[in-house]
């Protein structure tokens, strides 16, 4: 199992990338899965650094990555306010550049590239569990064509 603890700061993002480079080799993660895991963890950590303020438990993010059988499992723990990415409204693609507001894509990418998502919030922090199988991504991408 690989474990990484990050401070909740932008300067830490390079450590996430280097750690993923090592874990891809150590855990012998196939390229397609490695891409999905990297994308989801980058987006999850980006969101946590961007939106979560420092807490009494410290501005910290813990990440574990390991195989469970044929499934690669990433667990991201933080200690800020709860945020369940499963409850975010369906994504609405932009229709034109002029009115497009860049951003807000991270959760959509996580929901698209992870095979399965669990989330639990408790007194001891928040735990986001992302599972990745050979068939990366969900068959039913939630896109709301009528909105936006």
């Amino acid at each position: 199992m690989g474990h990484l603890t990050l401070s909740q700061a932008w300067r830490e993002i390079g450590r996430l990338s280097e750690w993923l480079d090592r874990e891809e080799r150590t855990l012998a993660i196939p390229a397609k899965l490695a891409h999905a895991v990297r994308l989801c963890l980058e987006e999850a950590v980006d969101n946590l650094i961007h939106y979560t303020s420092t807490t009494a438990e410290g501005p910290r993010i813990d990440i574990d990555l390991d195989w469970q059988g044929d499934t690669l499992v990433a667990v991201v723990c933080d200690y800020g306010p709860p945020f369940d990415p499963r409850t975010v409204r369906a994504f609405s693609p932009a229709k034109d550049l002029k009115t497009m507001q860049p951003g807000g894509w991270g959760v959509h990418l996580i929901r698209s590239y992870a095979s399965d998502i669990d989330y639990a919030a408790g007194l001891d922090g928040n735990q986001l569990t992302l599972r990745f199988t050979g068939a990366v991504g969900r068959a039913s991408l939630q896109v709301d064509p009528g909105a936006g």
């Binding site: 891409h35 990297r38 994308l39 980058e42 987006e43 980006d46 550049l97 002029k98 497009m100 860049p102 951003g103 894509w105 991270g106 990418l109």
Partner: peptide
Amino acid sequence: FIASIGIRTLVIGAKTVQ
């Protein structure tokens, strides 16, 4: 590799050019 923040850079550039 591209993450959403990289797409943001491209989109902001495209808006400027447009």
